[in-house]
Design a protein around this nucleic acid. Structure first.
Length: 280
DNA sequence: GAAGCGTGGGG
DNA sequence: TCCCCAAGCTT
């Protein structure tokens, strides 16, 4: 925590004047997307929709377009749905309890804990990929966390969080930050680590990973890639005729299948004249 | 529990 | 170039 006080980054959503909504938006954008790419989009988003009610009153397609190239655009849709739920169920205020947060679309264990801790100073156990790696190394002596979060891992993380609410909030962000800046997946900088002298992994001589294979997700040639191309086209143009999407995949069947999926997901709206657009 | 879901940067 | 990985969630 002393290391964090000295070396933590001054990010906009960490400032005291940042609203719980700002924290929530940031956390959803940062799901699987590096912060460096999140920051500019977050600023534009917060300027345009400073409160949940502002976003709730916009068409969902506007959220998808403003999401830009952050990836996984279903997150934009769910954030928009969450804004409407916050207006309907919580009078426009981001809820602060785990139960209420988890009930919002697109908010899972990590994001609910992060909002409780970082927006409300609540006592939570924030477990993201950074925390998992830091705890695996320092406490278990393992080079990387297992592919999926286990119950034992969660218990370990809970046992590591300080008892006090304020302390817990700082702990959570400090461990995440340590994982992001020092205890990185590749090329950790143990020379700059405040707990290097107590790190089980380092003390064991940095043993290599020997767990189950970490499957890299294929992308080239997948529907995901095609969906991305289709949405990119729809983001730049209001209403797109079907033939303009031909070049999104080598096989037209693939384009049709992906369009069906996008429509089912609510990311694309088919028009009566056969054109497609982002949902109004 | 596994699979599907985007995109881009760095080693 | 290629591969890995990034503040995960949902089905």
């Amino acid at each position: 925590m002393s290391w964090y006080a000295a070396h933590g980054r001054d990010l906009p959503w960490r400032r005291p004047e940042c609203s719980p909504w700002g924290v929530l938006v940031c956390e959803v954008m940062a799901q699987q997307t590096p912060l460096a790419r999140v920051e500019p989009v977050w600023h534009a988003w917060m300027r345009r929709w400073p409160t949940p009610a502002d976003l709730a009153s916009a068409p969902p397609g506007d959220a998808v377009r403003a999401w830009g190239r952050l990836g996984y655009p279903r997150r934009a849709l769910r954030l928009h749905e969450a804004a409407r739920a916050i207006v309907e169920r919580h009078a426009g205020d981001v809820p602060s309890t785990e139960e209420d947060l988890l009930a919002l679309p697109g908010i899972g264990a990590y994001t609910a804990a992060a909002v409780r801790a970082f927006a409300f100073g609540g006592h939570a156990t924030v477990v993201d990929t950074n925390v998992r790696r830091v705890l695996a190394r320092t406490l278990l002596g393992e080079p990387l966390a297992a592919p999926a979060l286990t119950a034992a891992e969660r218990r370990l993380a809970e046992s590591a969080v300080p008892a006090g609410h304020r302390e817990a909030a700082v702990w959570n962000v400090a461990v995440m930050e340590l994982g992001a800046l020092v205890c990185t997946a590749r090329g950790p900088v143990c020379d700059r680590c405040p707990v290097a002298d107590r790190c089980a992994w380092r003390l064991a001589g940095h043993p290599a990973y020997d767990g189950p294979k970490r499957r890299g997700q294929a992308y080239e040639g997948t529907d995901r890639q095609v969906r991305g191309r289709i949405l990119a086209r729809l983001r730049e143009t209001e209403e797109v005729p079907r033939p303009d999407l031909d070049d999104c995949a080598p096989e037209q069947g693939t384009v049709d299948r992906c369009l069906d999926g996008l429509v089912a997901d609510g990311l694309v709206e088919p028009l009566a004249d056969g054109r497609f657009r982002l949902p109004a």
